[in-house]
Design a protein around this nucleic acid. Structure first.
Lengths: 156, 156
DNA sequence: AAACAATTGACAGCATGCTGTCATGTTACT
DNA sequence: AGTAACATGACAGCATGCTGTCAATTGTTT
């Protein structure tokens, strides 16, 4: 009988659509949380990575799964606005190190309380156990996909 | 002791970052699967909704969590390319119904085999049980967030 | 050392999604 | 009925992320 379980296409499709929606929801939330500050969701994400450690643009891109060029553009804007700065990289002449400035740190600090409140609301809403489970499931899915990336995407 | 569990901010932040990465991964996969056809990930998503049922642009936007305007632009392109068409809506003079044409259906059919293969690869990679668990966890998260949307986003 | 490949930054062009705004059509309320 | 609130389509402008391309730098191989 065909009802024994849903086909893999259906399950994968369901996951993809839900991830799209979650992504939109989180971006909207981030734009909301950063409103009033000099940050947007994209700038916040990049700046958050160089808060404590300096990295090159390419390294940042790899760590968050975006392209070099996208991160480069955001990083340039951050530097123009004074929220970050390029420091010389002893290991590479061209690949400067992006670093968070005092001004950038202050921007992060400004929105921190709102972020904490938001996260706690979600925690109360979902419940700590289910929230942890969700994190585990999503991270497990992502990890396995990343490991097999070349099999699934590179040869398309 | 502070190690009893991770703070809600950390857990939520982990989920958000993973969802961002998953989103990027799925979009990349969709662009890959649609390559060679007249579709892109965005057009595929919109067209997929009106495959069997006709809907207004605004209704489509609501169902996938995008804005009216975004869907409107994609829908207009689909109509220009002949993959979809606007049909008169008996219930509303201005809000026409977007409908998939034969040409659009053929485009969907063209990429279907690649999609099935891709989904089955993911199924083999993750394992059916874990895949189902992941879908359940993600859908549960999304559902609860959507229900409480106005509390978390509208008043930001 | 020289040649080649890989990495990185820079720039251009494009696709996608957002907000804001307006006119038009629909619905609800009195 | 008439009016106000809402929904919808249309358009403009902007932010974000992508691909493609090129030159400069670094690393590897011979």
């Amino acid at each position: 009988m065909k009802e024994r379980n849903r086909s893999s296409v259906e399950v994968v499709n369901g996951i993809v659509l839900d991830v799209f929606k979650l992504n939109g929801y989180f971006i909207k939330a981030a734009d909301c949380l950063t409103k009033g500050s000099e940050l947007t969701s994209a700038r916040w994400q990049v700046l958050g990575i160089v808060l404590h450690e300096q990295h090159t643009v390419a390294a940042i891109a790899r760590s968050i799964g975006l392209t070099r060029q996208s991160v480069q553009r955001i990083a340039d804007v951050l530097v123009i606005d004074g929220l970050a700065e390029y420091l010389p990289n002893p290991a590479h002449k061209r690949a400067k190190l992006l670093s968070c400035t005092e001004k950038g740190l202050n921007s992060i600090k400004t929105i921190r309380p709102k972020v904490v409140t938001w996260a706690e609301r979600i925690n109360d809403l979902i419940g700590q156990d289910e929230l942890n489970e969700a994190e585990k499931a999503i991270n497990n899915l992502l990890s396995k996909l990343m490991i097999a990336e070349e099999q699934l995407i590179t040869r398309c």
